[in-house]
Design a binder for these strands. Structure first.
Lengths: 188, 188
DNA sequence: GAAAATATGGAGACAGTCTCCACTTGTCAA
DNA sequence: TTGACAAGTGGAGACTGTCTCCATATTTTC
């Protein structure tokens, strides 16, 4: 996935500037800036922006790449200190918490999850994987096995897609509550 | 909500033609047609299209208006013949079933649900309302009361937003399973 | 330090959206 | 009927944002 050819020094610098600027703008709630304008604000030419990030989504993914990686690491870490079912619960709650204070991330994830193929979906796939792992670990005994990780991700996609609804936080918490309660194997 | 001034005969005719044409194209999976081209295909001028439907979403909502109304009616009908909890279950299953064979509807609903205000959201609001009603009826005794209709709608939004994922059907069924199982009041 | 490789920027081609208004069509009162 | 007014039409073209292209500049390599 990582490129073989190392970027030239100036190219690397530009790329980093672009990501930093994008992060700053996204954090300020400014998502729909003209792409050309955006290049200008970052102090590079349009061509440079397009060469590094062919699409808006590519840029968004680059900006949130670390964040998504951190999320996945967190999941794996939780798995080492908690029973798998509790780890999944804690992870999902964490995700919602994080999304709530990072609208841009929610937006980006909603897009990444909707994009089924290509490098762009990498982040979505990574998340899917950690959820699937937690789920698999928790299944025997505690979780039902007729519902897959895809369904959990789909619920998560709803949470992401609805990121700017006024009642987002409480609704999202509710979704997680339903998913977790629903996953628990019904008592025999 | 309905306009006071009745449309002139030719205007009404054009509007109907536009909706019919859009329905036909959507059914064929053709969603992202140029708006201008679309007008041409329907045999009207660009101006006419824009006057009737200022945005793509307005057109989509008009196309699926009947469908959404039918869904809401169906929910109310179910409520008269089944206990509320079963009615909600049947309704949600029905919705997924319907979405599955009408991608355009899923797409449209995803947009409508994401749009928090304005006439465009009417369809989304109507659905929210019937779900809220079913839920309220089912609550005493059977359903938990710490999770609102907004959460159910959010899960539904995920189902809609993921409409073109390859595993959509089974994942969506899983989400409904989780929501319904999660809603059930845990045995004391 | 010269050649080769790599990257830059921004002008301008292009594509899609949407407005505007001279003109057409429908409605209604007389 | 008909004439006058209201309502609606269509499509040229202004506008807005996207993206490509390439002469020029910078970095790397030998």
């Amino acid at each position: 996935m990582t490129d073989a050819r190392p970027l030239r020094a100036d190219a690397r610098r530009n790329r980093d500037t672009l990501i930093a600027k994008a992060r700053e703008l996204f954090a300020g709630g400014c998502f729909d800036l003209r792409f050309d304008d955006f290049a200008k604000r970052a102090g590079v030419g349009t061509g440079t922006l397009y060469r590094h990030f062919p699409t808006r989504e590519a840029l968004a993914e680059a900006v949130y790449h670390e964040e998504i990686t951190a999320m996945c690491d967190r999941a794996r870490e939780l798995r080492t200190t908690l029973p798998a079912d509790e780890a999944l619960a804690a992870f999902l709650r964490d995700v919602v918490d994080h999304l709530h204070s990072h609208q841009g991330l929610a937006r980006t994830l909603a897009t990444l999850m909707a994009t089924r193929s290509g490098a762009l979906a990498e982040g979505g796939r990574a998340l899917h994987e950690v959820v699937a792992d937690l789920l698999a670990d928790a299944r025997p005994g505690t979780f039902r096995d007729d519902v897959g990780a895809g369904s959990v991700m789909m619920a998560l996609q709803g949470i992401c897609a609805a990121y700017d609804q006024p009642t987002h936080r409480s609704d999202a918490d509710g979704v997680i509550t339903l998913v977790l309660a629903g996953l628990r194997r019904p008592a025999q």
